[in-house]
Amino acid sequence: MSLGGLVLGQYRFERKMFWRNPSAAFFTFALPLLFFVLIASVFSTDSDELEVLVPGIAGMSIVGATFTALSYYLVQLRENGILKRVQGSPMPASAYLAGLLASAVANAFVSVLVVVAVGRLGYGMDANLDVLELLVFTTLGVIAFGGLGVAFAFVIPNADSAPAYVNAVFLPLIFISGVFYSADDLPPVLDAIARALPLKHVIDGLSGALVTGTWPAGALLVLGVWCVAGVVAALRLFRWE
């Protein structure tokens, strides 16, 4: 079978496994929507709040579908010996990982699409829509957080400690990066940390695509650096066992 065929075979298999795992499906798709709907209801739905919330939740979905999901999943695959079995089989590592990553990437794009659709169709947000910009920043977010997720899986020592490790990164990150509220008046230290990390810049970009119609050049630059860092870290830390 060709390399492409193997990637596709692995991808199809991963899709099936994903939908059979209720908690993965919940954290990837249901949780962002739940936050979205709850916060939109609690803070009424004036357009200012929505214009912060939609890009914020979309950015959070990208992190959930890539960083969080891949960290958890790769820890499981490593700990129960699936990676070791693949290593000993004739499956090329590139095809295996491509199929696996493609599944996470698909989740990220679909969940951004769902959040944007709910914002526009469900809550009537219609400030702006720059599809190219949406694609560019979603892609940059997926690459950066996908790479970091793969790398982080090999920092986590075992399956039991995965939730603690992942949430110790994920929760502070979404709180300082302006997912739920505008991050404009954070204390300076937190603001500096948020600006150094990628999520705030993903959200800035999505906000440009969905609200302001501007292209934040600084965000592009920082995300470009994080994409390289994420991919390099993934390649360096990946192990079969």
Binding site: Q10, N80, G81, I82, K84, R85, S89, M91
Partner: peptide, 26 residues
Amino acid sequence: GIVTQEGGFYPRATVREGVELAGLPY
């Protein structure tokens, strides 16, 4: 062919799905 004795199974796959997947790269 390697019998690992260390598991390495996708728990949510059916037996047939697991065997089909393993057969792909041969």
